[in-house]
Design a protein around this nucleic acid. Structure first.
Length: 107
DNA sequence: GGGGTGACGCGTC
DNA sequence: CGACGCGCCACCC
């Protein structure tokens, strides 16, 4: 009765695994969720963000490492500020994926 | 019940 | 090299 869809649940579970000072991409999450094409659903899942306290959607960026403009759940700067607060360097809203992209196996 | 859209990503023309 | 459409899933109308 909690899980509406396995896909959504998996996405939340993955995003929830993102460690401090790291970021993940929609494609990465989508792939871990089952299919990379699920990237759209990933964005939607974070959009509903039923648990912003456990699901740091601000740690999720697109494959370019850029924060989404529609993210503004409190101001685009909000996300950038949070990322920088974790030690992540954000350049013009772009995060160095090669430096901060989270690796599930690296965990 | 059916159709359209969306916080993306990739393939093909 | 540039532009366009497609695919997947879920939610809304």
């Amino acid at each position: 009765m909690e899980q509406k869809s396995n896909t959504f649940t998996q996405i939340y579970d993955i995003v929830r695994q993102i460690p401090y000072g790291k970021v993940a991409t929609y494609g990465q999450i989508a792939e871990l969720a089952g299919n990379k094409r699920l990237s759209r659903v990933v964005g939607y899942a974070l959009h509903v963000n039923p648990d912003p306290d456990g699901i740091p959607c601000y740690r999720v960026v697109n494959r370019f490492g850029a924060v989404s403009p529609a993210f503004a759940f409190g101001g685009e700067n909000r996300q950038i500020g949070l990322l920088e607060a974790e030690g992540i360097k954000v350049t013009d809203g772009i995060v160095d994926l090669k430096q901060y992209q989270w690796s599930r196996r690296s965990f």
